[in-house]
């Protein structure tokens, strides 16, 4: 009897747990197990295929793309967040920037690819303007549809994400700390280098890691923009899923997805640790 009363409240969680097991845990386990299988038996062939020259080059491209856009996004996003945080909390500027950031960071995907095609594509608005006005062909040999284009478009959604993630940390910097520093004779430079930057560093690094993971796993923008070749990991996964055999491996999609889990999990764990450090003084 006493055992039943202890158990029955937990039983109500069963539907939730079963649902997540089916639609989240089973797919994840499928990927992990599938990565170590070929033709239904244990094999490391797919994992080894990850270390082939072509796969490594793709991984390198993905890392470069994610790291570049994470750094650019983090620096510019932090700057924009600072410009916003120095405006009064109820100002129109602040509300507009926060709302627009929410939309651009989360909605993204295909839409942004088309925005940039409309702007910088072969018959894009800016392309035609420059072509007729200055005689410069900004379209060139189609850089927009390769890695450089991806960096530009990814930056466009990384900056807003940084604003959303970093704004709370900036808001947590209390004006009293600055006043205390100034009272003790600190210059503006000293306040920033000795007080603000050390306080914000974990939050900044954490946010940069989140941006890295975000870019690494992003698929829609790249899929809509790049039509030739598979320069980055998500597109290689697409190729592995749609054409059965790639690099001679049937289960390569599982191995590539497994690689993505590992990269994102490592980055997100580091992020969680850094956030825990920030939350010690935040609020």
């Amino acid at each position: 009897m006493s055992r039943r009363t202890a158990l029955s409240p937990s039983l109500a969680l069963l539907p939730f747990l079963v649902y997540l097991t089916i639609f989240l845990l089973v797919p994840t386990v499928t990927v992990v197990v599938g990565a170590f299988q070929e033709d239904g038996s244990f094999s490391t062939a797919n994992i080894e295929a990850l270390f082939s020259e072509a796969a490594l080059r793709t991984l390198w491209n993905s890392v470069v793309l994610s790291a570049t856009t994470a750094v650019i996004g983090a620096v510019l996003g932090a700057l924009l967040a600072y410009l916003v945080v120095t405006a009064p909390p109820t100002s129109l500027l602040r509300r507009v920037v926060v709302s627009v950031s929410g939309v651009l960071a989360q909605f993204g995907g295909v839409t942004l690819a088309f925005a940039f095609i409309a702007m910088l594509g072969f018959s894009g608005v800016v392309t035609e303007l420059l072509r007729s006005a200055v005689g410069v062909d900004i379209f060139g040999s189609g850089w927009l549809f390769g890695l450089p284009g991806l960096i530009l478009v990814y930056t466009y959604f990384q900056i807003p994400l940084m604003v959303i993630v970093f704004l709370p940390a900036l808001e947590g910097l209390r004006p009293q700390w600055r006043e205390a520093a100034v009272n003790l004779g600190a210059t503006t430079w000293q306040y920033w280098t000795r007080v603000a930057v050390p306080l914000l560093r974990p939050a900044f690094l954490g946010a940069s890691l989140l941006l890295f993971a975000n870019a690494f796993a992003a698929y829609a923008t790249a899929a809509a923009l790049v039509s030739q070749g598979n320069p980055i990991v998500p597109l290689l996964i697409r190729a592995a899923l749609t054409s059965e055999v790639l690099l001679g491996r049937q289960n390569l999609a599982f191995a590539l997805a497994f690689q993505m889990i590992v990269v994102v999990a490592v980055v997100m764990t580091a992020y969680a640790l850094l956030v825990r450090r920030t939350s010690r003084w935040l609020r």
Partner: peptide, 14 residues
């Protein structure tokens, strides 16, 4: 942490 791209790869059986 488990991106949509990973879920889609693993969810064929489900």
């Amino acid at each position: 942490t488990i991106p949509a791209l990973v879920i889609v790869v693993g969810m064929r059986n489900v």
